[in-house]
């Protein structure tokens, strides 16, 4: 199954790595940006199956992004990327409806597994 995954993180290096993994290991379409607002715009205009977002970004906090995204598409799963010290906020994000969180640094198998789970969840929950 090929899905469209939007990734937002203010660290371009991390975007590069994620994009490389997903291009190498999956058929998913990957859209990356360092600007959360652009991710929101993209999700409004196009079809996205999954959003992966950093928790702390200068322009917009991950939780705020989550709230906006849930208004656009309540069945769009969001995976939060978090640093070790901010796990508390990631748990908070899950209370607000984030699908899962993953702590940096993480193994590529870990993110691939989490992505697969999130996409399955979307398939199961998306209204026919």
């Amino acid at each position: 199954m090929s899905a469209t995954i939007v990734i937002v993180d203010d660290e371009p290096d991390l975007l590069d790595l994620l994009k490389l993994i997903l291009t190498e290991k999956t058929d998913h379409q990957v859209v990356t940006t360092t600007n959360p607002q652009e991710a929101v715009d993209w999700c409004r205009e196009y079809h996205a199956d999954l959003l992966i977002s950093d928790l702390r970004m200068p322009e917009m906090e991950g939780i705020e992004l989550l709230k906006i995204i849930k208004e656009i598409d309540p069945y769009l799963p969001l995976i939060i990327i978090t640093a070790y010290g901010t796990i508390g906020s990631a748990v908070e994000a899950m209370r607000h409806g984030a699908f899962d969180y993953i702590t940096k640094p993480f193994r590529k198998e870990h993110i691939l597994m989490t992505i697969a789970k999130a996409l399955r969840w979307r398939q199961e929950h998306l209204p026919a």
Binding site: D13, L14, L18, A83, K104, P105, R107, K108
Partner: peptide, 9 residues
């Protein structure tokens, strides 16, 4: 070579 990380790490 198996990890995803950033400069912050």
């Amino acid at each position: 070579g198996d990890y995803v990380f950033d400069l912050q790490f």
